[in-house]
Design a protein around this nucleic acid. Structure first.
Lengths: 204, 204
DNA sequence: ATGTCAACGGCACGTGCCGTACCGATAGGG
DNA sequence: CCCTATCGGTACGGCACGTGCCGTTGACAT
């Protein structure tokens, strides 16, 4: 009889997360208020507070509910190309709404909410980092990567500059940047004995 | 006659920034309210709003007013050692209050306040990055760095992973990490023709 | 010494959102 | 077909925001 017929719990959970993403795109995720989400979703505030302990927790679930295309590495015998390909895909995903702004807001939240920080790491950062480490391990086993390399260190070297550009510089990350970046990583910063090719600008 | 005799404008500016740092250390910079700062500093809210357009602007000025030791690069003929030394100093500075939490809070603010982001870059990030680029340029001129290397790219490669550890991983950055990190950067991730030494773990 | 004026501390206001509590309605499981 | 957990809605006290006003104060020029 009511215009919005009562739905089961799972339906509401989904509706709230969908509304969170929508409303966040309209007014910006940092400005989102629980009140506004509840009003827009046609839901009592209690129904939100019962499910999520903080705005950050809601944002994280909303992000993960987006089921964007899984980013998985290729496993060709060209690690460098595989890393570049993956990075291009990740950059593209982060470049536009809703994923980019959501991740940005979540990382900001994580700076002052340890619980959000822990969950973000566990459910978003670590899975991506894990895939990267796995890819690097394979490369190492196949002799395509320096053998005495701590893989976690390698992971943060591969990831760090991209996060730096995303969070600090906050300017669009070009394909050229990604290409040059990985080229430089593999070649190293030391000058080579002159025989070798250019250190960067070696697009594939 | 009043217990707090009137002071000149500059005095108040300084008092407010000092109170900001103090109170922030006690209750955390994200929880800081203008009201609380004004009350603690014995100052009207207007006096704060007249000087700073946002909490982020106040935090940034407060940070820069700390006149911590200037971090300047050494210019020996060992770039790698100079970079490590500088990184160690920076990590140490960021590891403990008030600088670390302040920078963290500012970067969080910068994620949803473009004005803070711009000022933070201009007055904090860029100066440090500039020194790094300058040091790298010298190294390049002296042949200690691969000659065809975009210096801005090199800068973000050197900085990124440290910010990544600081903001995302949020675990203390050890001296060993910094040492391994720069060792890896200069050696490159490609396997070497077996002749060369280990890629990492080469403490000086 | 006196006058001027901008800046000041203090206070109050309206607004927005927080997180909680209570209500009557309702739907699903026993 | 009833029972009970969950629901939407509403109201609440509390806090901080940013602004406006008021009477005071102190630096500076006269």
């Amino acid at each position: 009889m009511t215009s919005t017929p009562r739905r089961r719990g799972a339906d509401r959970t989904e509706a709230i997360m969908r509304t969170t993403v929508e409303l966040g795109q309209e007014i910006g995720y940092p400005k989102l208020s629980i009140e506004a989400i509840a009003a827009r979703a046609g839901v009592g505030k209690h129904t939100i507070y019962r499910r999520w302990s903080s705005k950050g927790a809601l944002l994280l679930d909303s992000l993960l509910s987006l089921d964007e295309p899984e980013l998985d590495f290729s496993y060709t015998d060209d690690v460098l190309a595989d890393l570049r390909e993956q990075a291009h895909a990740a950059v593209e995903l982060l470049a536009r709404p809703p994923v980019g702004p959501l991740v940005q807001a979540l990382i900001a939240e994580a700076q002052h909410d340890p619980q959000v920080a822990a969950e973000l790491k566990e459910r978003f950062i670590n899975p991506m980092a894990g895939k990267l480490v796995k890819r690097l391990r394979t490369a190492q086993e196949q002799g395509h990567l320096s053998p005495d390399f701590d893989l976690d260190l390698a992971m943060s070297i591969c990831s760090g500059p991209l996060y730096f550009q995303f969070l600090i510089i906050q300017e669009p990350i070009t394909r050229e940047y990604v290409n040059d970046f990985f080229g430089a990583l593999f070649t190293g910063m030391s000058p080579r004995p002159a025989a070798r090719g250019k250190a960067v600008r070696q697009d594939r």
